[in-house]
Amino acid sequence: MSQKQKGWKEIPIAGVCWKPATEYHTGDWKTFKPIRDPQKCTKCLLCPMICPDAAIRWNKTEEAIEFDYNFCKGCGICANECPAKAIEMVREEEA
């Protein structure tokens, strides 16, 4: 969507996908993005489980959760469900 789009002569027929779904960034139209407050986060790991887009991962090196904004659609379920109120939904342009 945000990537350069191809013309009709360049793409396969019948809607055949010429790239894997992981390259199709379904999260690039969100209005709000989740921001984690590391001070409040208890690392309970509830949010990776409830994210409908599997866009929250555990980062081993950082020992913290991280959002994959390419696939996060900004639904806000994580912020709503976080027991520690450690996630805030912020307008994309203000984040």
Binding site: M1, P12, I13, A14, G15, V16, C17, W18, K19, P20
Partner: peptide, 28 residues
């Protein structure tokens, strides 16, 4: 046709060379 694994494959549904036909295809 060019498939999602980045190689040209026969235009048919075949488990050995999987492709997707007629998926969601919006205004883009």
């Amino acid at each position: 046709v060019m498939g999602h694994e980045g190689k040209e494959v026969p235009f048919k549904l075949d488990p050995d060379n999987p492709i997707t036909m007629g998926p969601l295809d919006l205004y883009d």
